[in-house]
Design a protein around this nucleic acid. Structure first.
Lengths: 141, 141
DNA sequence: TCTTGACATAAAGTGCACTTTAGGTTATAA
DNA sequence: TTATAACCTAAAGTGCACTTTATGTCAAGA
């Protein structure tokens, strides 16, 4: 289960990234260099998929590519960068907390809007029914 | 408190948008046309600020400008669009729920990473201390 | 009266994160 | 053996949401 390798297509399916995006991440240095077969094709390992999962996590929480690259480079540089890495993660975690708060406030505002519109709709329907009833009255007379 | 008017600068401060962004929203038709003074300057009301708050809420939850424009246009068209508006808000609300879930999963992953790195740091420090102690031993001998 | 600051417009520019295109190599299957 | 599919690179293109620039008007204070 550990030494399995994957083609770029398989990795794309596993990570929900497109093939060009994965290549782009590697050429940008966000994804560390991937092993190659004799013919030059990328041969991905579970470790590479791990890096991509990390990249997705950081991207999905709004971290720019450049900063992710910085973090990954620190990881590759080794022990001396451990404090920098921890600090970056903690700082980033705080921004994610902020995003969560902002987002749930917006969510509440949207719910409020929905209810407001629903009440509006009730009134509109009531008015239409009233008009319809009046028209029926007119027909009868 | 209701008939107060504002300059574009004041609105920018109130909404945390830049002046060009507010103008951009109006020219794009996302913000309904704002009243003008005799000299052609925009004169904002609380209602305009309300629109901008809505726009910020929808933008901040990932709705593209075009769709916001659609929603605002529906609002201006009146009663007949009430069902469309409610449907859009409900659908959008669902995507916000998804965003919240994804984001809190990512947040958990980051916390996990932080702890992982902290444990790593403990080991690195322990190893460094061990080396330091051994060097002191060497000096004594 | 003149200058300063806040406003205006139209059009071009920017930054980011990909995506698309064009052209080429390699391995398997009919 | 030839065609097809999966991979490759380098470079140009795209889409979105603004932002910047260039140029001009207008009202108020020195």
């Amino acid at each position: 289960m550990e030494n399995k390798t994957y083609t770029i297509k398989e990795v794309a399916e596993k990570t929900n990234l497109t093939i060009p995006t994965i290549r782009y991440y590697e050429t940008e240095g966000v994804l560390p260099p991937v092993e190659r077969s004799e013919s030059g094709n990328r041969v991905f390992t579970d470790s590479d998929i791990g890096w991509l999962d990390l990249i997705c996590c950081l991207r999905g929480t709004g971290m720019p590519i450049k900063k992710i690259k910085q973090f990954v480079q620190w990881c590759l540089e080794g022990d001396d960068t451990i404090d920098d890495r921890i600090e970056m993660l903690i700082e980033h975690g705080k921004t994610v907390d902020e995003q969560l708060e902002v987002l749930s406030n917006y969510k509440a505002a949207i719910e409020w809007k929905i209810n407001y519109h629903r009440e509006m709709k009730m009134q509109i329907d009531a008015r239409r029914n009233a008009v319809r009833l009046m028209e029926q009255q007119d027909l009868k007379s």
